[in-house]
C-alpha cells in the first residue's frame, strides 16, 4: 500500500512538473507531428506498399520524438539535489524504475495519440478499422521503447554526458520492437489480422516482459551513488 502511494506521488510529481514547465512535451509533439506531416507529403505519391512505408514511419517518428522525452525524465532529477530527494522515498530503486517507466509510458502514449490519428488523416491508410488491434500494438510497442529508454536514461544520468548518444545507443536494442511493431501495424492497415499478426504481437510481448524485468533487476546495479 505504501509502495503504491509512493509510486502515485512519484508519477504525479513528474506530470505536474512537466505541466508547469512545459519543457519537453510541446517540442516532442511538434517534432512527431512535423515528421509525420513531411513524410506523408512524399507518401502521397506512392501507390504500391503505402501501408508498409507508413508503418515504419510511424514507429521511427515515435522513437525519435520520444527520445527527446525519454532522456529528459531522468536528467531533470540530476540537478539541484533532486536525486538525493528521490532516493529518500521509502522504496527500492526497482520502484523508481517502475515510476519512471510509467511516466515515460504516458509520455509516449500522448505522442502516439497525436501521431497515429494524424497519420490516418493524412495518408488515408485505414488504421482505425481495427482500432483495438492497433491499440494493442501501440501499447506493446510503447512499453518496449520506454522500458529500454528508461534504463538507458538511467545509465546516461550517471555519465553526465548528456543524451546526445542515447538515440544511437538505444536503436540497436529496440530494433526488434521497431521491426515487430511496424510489421504488426502494416498487417493492421492491410486488415490481415491472423496468426501472423499474433506472432508479431507475441514477439512484442516477449520483448516487453524481458526488458521490463531486466530494467527492474539492472536498475539497482546501474544507478547507486
Amino acid at each position: 500500500m505504501r509502495t503504491a502511494t509512493t509510486l502515485y506521488w512519484l508519477v504525479c510529481k513528474d506530470l505536474v512538473s512537466e505541466y508547469r514547465a512545459r519543457q519537453v512535451w510541446p517540442a516532442m509533439l511538434m517534432l512527431g507531428a512535423l515528421v509525420t506531416f513531411l513524410f506523408n507529403a512524399q507518401l502521397d505519391a506512392v501507390v504500391e506498399g503505402k501501408s508498409r512505408m507508413l508503418a515504419i514511419q510511424v514507429w521511427l517518428a515515435i522513437y525519435f520524438a520520444g527520445t527527446l522525452a525519454l532522456h529528459r525524465t531522468l536528467t531533470t532529477e540530476h540537478v539541484d539535489g533532486c536525486w538525493d530527494a528521490l532516493r529518500l522515498y521509502p522504496i527500492t530503486p526497482a520502484w523508481i524504475y517502475t515510476a519512471k517507466l510509467t511516466v515515460n509510458f504516458l509520455v509516449l502514449a500522448a505522442l502516439q495519440a497525436v501521431i497515429l490519428p494524424l497519420c490516418v488523416l493524412l495518408s488515408n491508410v485505414p488504421l482505425q478499422e481495427h482500432a483495438w488491434h492497433m491499440v494493442v500494438v501501440a501499447v506493446l510497442g510503447n512499453i518496449g521503447i520506454s522500458s529500454v529508454g528508461t534504463l538507458l536514461g538511467g545509465l546516461w544520468l550517471c555519465s553526465r554526458q548528456g543524451a546526445s548518444m542515447l538515440a544511437c545507443l538505444a536503436l540497436p536494442l529496440v530494433a526488434p520492437v521497431i521491426l515487430a511493431a511496424s510489421e504488426a501495424t502494416r498487417l493492421v492497415a492491410d486488415s490481415e489480422i491472423g496468426p501472423q499478426w499474433w506472432r508479431w504481437v507475441g514477439l512484442l510481448g516477449v520483448f516487453d516482459v524481458v526488458f521490463v524485468t531486466a530494467g527492474i533487476v539492472l536498475f539497482d546495479f546501474i544507478i547507486e551513488d
Binding site: V148, L151, L155, L169, P172, L173, A175, P176, V210, F211, A214, L218, F221, I222
Partner: peptide
C-alpha cells in the same frame, strides 16, 4: 549493462 541488454536482445 549495455552488453547484458544486448545479450538479452
Amino acid at each position: 549493462a549495455l552488453a547484458i541488454l544486448g545479450l538479452l536482445d
